[in-house]
């Protein structure tokens, strides 16, 4: 029994220590970081955070990320729900073919598409633009969204929709006023899944978002860390890292049950 708790605590320690250490180091001076990695800061240097936010542009990167991920999430949920609903609740020629073509997108590694995708986005003049990234993010989030919501819309009872049709509601009206509200639990799960996935995207922006002013958080932080070898501001970098982790931590503490359920939903399916 004792042994069990020892192991459990040990892994909790392994998970939390690096994060706490990064947070603590963000308040130290560079020389303190170099002299003794485990020691507490002699004074809490909040200015490191200010430097990371302003000079290292973490504030700007955060704003870019919020705009791109927010836009992509709204677009993905709206379009994904529409397609999933049409495929799940209507019979028409080509229904199956469209469904399988969409869902097949989950099988392909993004690496395969990377080169042609770069040129498609380039030809459309969308490299390094908000709308370009929003559209690409949404397109790559569609397959899972449709797959998940398709199953969800199928499981909903049809009596309510039929009643609405008899009362003279249009197809659009039935979707937005009847079916979409009924699908809320499914929508929340996929939205969480998509949000985490899109927020953490690294490969797509690395290739499609070359302008440093437009960097998203992950990209900006990585670029900062890679260039760090040349002009070292370690404390600022630790502060930048903490700025990137903190919003995720706060969101997790607020919604931890829903987030765990949303992320594992994909694996259980």
């Amino acid at each position: 029994m004792k042994m069990k708790h020892l192991v459990l605590t040990l892994w909790a320690f392994v998970v939390t220590t690096p994060l706490l250490w990064a947070f603590m180091s963000s308040f130290k001076t560079d020389s303190e970081i170099f002299d003794s990695p485990w020691a507490l800061p002699s004074a809490v240097r909040v200015e490191n955070w200010g430097r990371a936010w302003e000079q290292a542009s973490m504030g700007k990167y955060l704003l870019n990320t919020v705009i791109i991920v927010g836009g992509a999430l709204v677009l993905t949920m709206l379009l994904g729900a529409l397609v999933a609903y049409c495929l799940a609740r209507y019979t028409f020629p080509g229904n199956r073919a469209i469904y399988y073509t969409l869902v097949a997108g989950m099988l392909f590694p993004v690496f395969l598409a990377l080169v042609p995708l770069f040129f498609v986005v380039n030809q459309l003049g969308m490299l390094g633009t908000y709308h370009g990234l929003i559209l690409v993010y949404a397109a790559y989030a569609l397959p899972f969204t449709v797959f998940f919501l398709h199953g969800f819309f199928r499981s909903l009872p049809s009596a309510v929709a039929e009643a609405a049709f008899i009362d003279g509601a249009s197809h659009t009206g039935v979707f937005f006023r009847v079916m979409l509200p009924m699908a809320r639990p499914g929508m929340v799960s996929v939205a969480i899944f998509n949000f985490v996935g899109l927020w953490n995207q690294y490969l797509l922006p690395l290739v499609l978002n070359p302008d440093p002013d437009g960097y998203v958080l992950t990209q900006g932080l990585a670029a900062l860390a890679i260039s760090q070898g040349y002009k070292s501001d370690w404390s600022g970098l630790f502060a930048g890292l903490s700025i990137a982790i903190l919003p995720v931590l706060v969101a997790y503490l607020l919604f931890q049950r829903q987030i765990r359920a949303g992320l594992t939903a994909g694996a259980v399916k």
Partner: peptide, 26 residues
């Protein structure tokens, strides 16, 4: 235990790069 799952690989990579740093690493 679940928390690292929420972090981007990019963030995890930067964090662990610090952990492995020869002189000042964790």
């Amino acid at each position: 235990y679940f928390f690292p799952q929420l972090l981007s690989v990019a963030i995890i990579a930067v964090l662990w790069q610090f952990i492995y740093t020869p002189n000042s690493g964790l």
